[in-house]
Amino acid sequence: MHLAPSIHLFFFLLFAIISLQVQAQDSEEICLSKPDDDRPISRVYHFLNTKFCQPAVWFDDFFADDRVTEDARAGTSVRWKNDFSYIEKDGFKYESKIDAKFNLPKVTKRLKLIIESEGEDSLFDLFPKNSDEVENNIGLRYDIYAKGYSSFNIKATFKPKIEARYRFTYPITLNTVSRITQKIYQQTELTGESTQFDIDHAINTHFLLRWTSFAEFERDHAEDTSIWNMGTGFILYQYISPTQAINYTISTTATDTPRSFIDNTLISLTYRQNVFYEWLYYEITPEYNWYREYQQSFEKEASIRFRLEIRFDNF
């Protein structure tokens, strides 16, 4: 399927405008924090606690990545996302989603009330998803442990679903950090686990490269079936100013059902800006998908999304 000429022209103009905005910005620096000594515990402390200094943590916070909001150190956060999308095959579409985490201090600071879009996490920011799969969900999260290299929490929702998540972060060098996230979950007749591995490398004070790979296994006891899904991808983050940033994404996913094959490849760009108020953001995301069913040829689909987001945080 070929894109209409008007869509090609729109994409070209969008990329041109964003490029001009980037070139017009002052070369304002963001800092690369360095610990006072070279001990591993000092490097970990600076990586995890200088939120607006280290590029990886700054970008995760600016793009509201779940590496910040899911970590046990995070406090109350609210995101109200309003997406206006144009999809080549389906036309215009509007979605409104709320993701929120509230501390319950009178009970314990470790316990949080959560409202989230099921399936909306860092994996699905990087890898393609079917928007029909995203559903709002309510539950509780208990942050059991958060110290040094690692954090561990348990989440239960009214879907019903229970999930345990462990995250381990280790700095390889001052500019390169590795991270592994392990999740195990049970949802009615479905048992699953996922393993996610990240490497972040700060190229300089304005660019961060992230490589993410995951493998996910699910067992459906009702139908006596199981499935493996896996994927790998890269995100290049670009700092423009304290209120502007871009990420460039390329990723691919595969499944083993009915046989092993690549089922989706994605390229996209997201321009994000904080405007007017510290809690108001907007995003523009053009993307292009190649997807297919087993033994079918790839189909192509272009889309563009405008997001208006209201965000409140109290970490």
Rank of each mutant, 00 (worst) to 15 (best):
H2T: 13
S6W: 07
H8E: 14
F11H: 09
F12R: 12
L13A: 11
L14N: 05
F15C: 12
A16D: 08
I17W: 10
V22I: 15
Q25K: 15
D26A: 03
I30C: 11
C31V: 03
C31H: 04
L32H: 14
L32Y: 05
S33I: 08
K34A: 13
P35W: 13
D36C: 02
D37F: 03
D38V: 09
P40L: 01
H46F: 08
H46L: 09
K51I: 08
W58I: 12
W58T: 15
W58M: 08
F63P: 04
A64N: 11
D65H: 10
D66S: 12
D66R: 04
E70N: 14
T76M: 07
T76N: 09
V78D: 13
R79L: 06
K81A: 10
D83K: 03
Y86I: 10
E88Y: 08
D90L: 01
D90V: 02
G91P: 04
E95I: 04
I98K: 00
F102T: 03
P105A: 11
R110M: 01
K112I: 00
K112T: 00
S117G: 14
E118N: 02
E118A: 08
D125Q: 09
L126S: 01
F127Q: 00
F127L: 04
P128S: 08
N130W: 05
D132W: 04
V134S: 01
N136K: 10
N137M: 05
N137R: 02
G139E: 08
Y142Q: 05
D143F: 05
D143V: 05
K147V: 06
S150Y: 01
I154Y: 06
T157G: 04
T157V: 10
T157Y: 00
F158K: 07
K161G: 06
R165E: 11
F168E: 04
P171H: 11
L174M: 11
T176W: 01
R179C: 11
K183D: 02
Q186V: 11
Q187M: 10
T191L: 05
T195F: 10
F197M: 06
D198T: 10
W211L: 06
W211G: 07
E216C: 04
E218W: 04
R219V: 00
R219E: 02
I227F: 11
N229F: 15
G233H: 08
I240M: 15
T243V: 06
T249I: 14
P258E: 01
I262M: 07
R272L: 15
Q273A: 13
I284D: 02
T285R: 14
Y288C: 03
W290I: 15
Q296R: 09
Q296W: 13
K300H: 11
E301S: 14
A302G: 15
S303R: 12
R305G: 05
R305F: 06
R307V: 14
L308N: 05
I310H: 08
